[in-house]
């Protein structure tokens, strides 16, 4: 009897082991490759990167010393990095406002019942399928040669010298290109929002004699609040990390007047070869983006209540 029950216990145990083994195999089969690659490309580099910020590594010397938080101190006391941060903030604010307004107005126009909605969607979205490096160069030609040529032949002083050689106008040029690219992108999200506004509501409002502007203000905007939250945060995050257009349009110039954070990090790391400080700057950018993302989660939740 005893022998029998032992045997049964053993068999239960055996089954459990077999089941566990089966689960492990299943996990390895379905999630193994993803976990492996994600660890090797995302998690390990992330942790390793945090480690780098506490060293004086310059990419060349074999001697790497632990130097505590002095890289972070350098980042926070570096007036050039702080300048890049302020420029980025300025760039973000203007780009976000202009591109959201343009995107929203375009979406309003396109959904107003006109023909060819698809054509306009496709057209305005086009800059977003092309890489930022190429877009930046196209606009580089426009600002440096096409507009200056036009300015000279028409006698418009404002554009007869290249905007890209003037420290103030260069940042404006960067904002224009960003807004040009992003407004088509945001337009598509706003179109999706506006298309979900019930038709009966709009009809009722216009029967009640509401003006077009009143319909937009009192009916459409409140009903697409969710799209607005998405668009605003999406554009803030994207512009905070802006790099490609910065590189090919202005390359941070003239006189470093358009060095945005992401570009600055690249410079610190690969031109100055100051990997520790560059990585610390990257962690600061990570902190900023995380705070913005958390704010988005907060505002989205609040919007749903």
């Amino acid at each position: 009897m005893k022998y029998f029950s032992n045997n049964k216990e053993a068999s239960v145990k055996h089954n459990r082991i077999k089941k566990n083994l089966n689960s492990i195999l299943l996990f390895l089969l379905f999630a193994g490759p993803v976990v492996f690659i994600w660890f090797s490309v995302v998690i390990i580099p992330f942790l390793y990167g945090i480690g780098i910020t506490f060293t004086d590594w310059n990419g060349l010397s074999i001697n790497v010393n632990f130097i505590g938080v002095s890289n972070y101190i350098e980042v926070f006391t570096d007036s050039v990095f702080f300048g890049a941060f302020l420029k980025t903030v300025l760039y973000v604010i203007f780009s976000v406002i202009i591109s959201n307004l343009t995107g929203f107005l375009l979406a309003l126009a396109v959904t107003s019942g006109i023909k060819g909605q698809g054509l306009f969607r496709t057209g305005f979205f086009t800059p977003n399928i092309i890489g930022g490096i190429i877009l930046g160069y196209i606009w580089n030609f426009i600002f440096s040669y096409a507009l200056t040529g036009l300015g000279k032949s028409l006698g418009i002083d404002f554009i007869s010298t290249s905007w890209l050689t003037d420290p103030h106008k260069a940042l404006a040029a960067l904002i224009i290109v960003t807004a040009w690219q992003m407004s088509g992108y945001l337009m598509v999200i706003y179109i999706a929002g506006l298309s979900s506004v019930p038709k009966e509501l709009l009809e009722a409002a216009s029967i009640d004699g509401a003006s077009r502007w009143a319909v937009v203000k009192k009916v459409k905007i409140p009903l697409i609040r969710n799209s607005i939250t998405i668009c605003v945060f999406l554009s803030i995050i994207r512009t905070f990390m802006s790099f490609d257009v910065n590189l090919s349009l202005t390359a941070g110039g003239p006189y470093k007047s358009t060095e945005l954070i992401a570009y600055k990090i690249y410079q610190t790391a690969f031109t100055k070869m100051d990997f520790g400080v560059g990585q610390a700057q990257a962690i600061v950018l990570f902190g900023i983006v995380t705070v913005i993302s958390l704010a988005q989660v907060y505002f989205t939740r609040k919007g749903r209540e």
């Binding site: 580099p45 990390m241 990090i265 990585q279 950018l285 990570f286 983006v289 995380t290």
Partner: peptide
């Protein structure tokens, strides 16, 4: 891990 910008991985990946 979706939140982190690429700049965070840039230097470690090169290394």
């Amino acid at each position: 891990s979706m939140v982190a910008p690429f700049q965070v991985y840039m230097i470690p990946l090169v290394k």
